[in-house]
Amino acid sequence: MKQIPMTLLGAESLREELEFLKSVRRPKIISDIAEARAHGDLKENAEYHAAREQQGFCEGRIQDIEAKLSNAQIIDVTKMPNTGRVIFGATVKVMNLETEEEVTYRIVGDDEADFKQNLISINSPMARGLIGKEADDVVVIKAPGGDIEFEILKVEYL
Rank of each mutant, 00 (worst) to 15 (best):
I4G: 01
L9K: 11
G10L: 03
A11N: 04
E12L: 14
S13E: 11
S13Y: 08
L14S: 02
L14G: 04
L14Q: 05
R15Q: 14
L18H: 06
S23M: 09
I30E: 14
I30Y: 07
I30F: 11
S31I: 11
S31Y: 07
I33W: 02
I33G: 00
A36Y: 11
E47K: 11
H49S: 15
R52L: 12
C58N: 04
C58Q: 03
R61E: 06
Q63M: 10
I65D: 00
E66K: 12
A67E: 11
N71F: 10
A72E: 02
A72N: 05
I75W: 03
M80Q: 15
M80D: 07
N82S: 07
T83V: 08
G84S: 06
I87Q: 09
F88K: 06
F88T: 01
K93C: 09
M95P: 12
N96T: 10
T99G: 04
T99N: 07
R106G: 01
R106M: 10
I107R: 00
V108L: 07
G109I: 00
D114P: 07
F115V: 06
I120D: 00
I122E: 00
S124R: 00
S124G: 08
M126N: 08
R128Y: 02
K133C: 10
E134A: 13
E134Q: 11
A135P: 06
V138N: 07
I141L: 13
G145P: 04
D147K: 07
D147E: 12
I148S: 05
E151G: 08
V155L: 05
L158D: 12
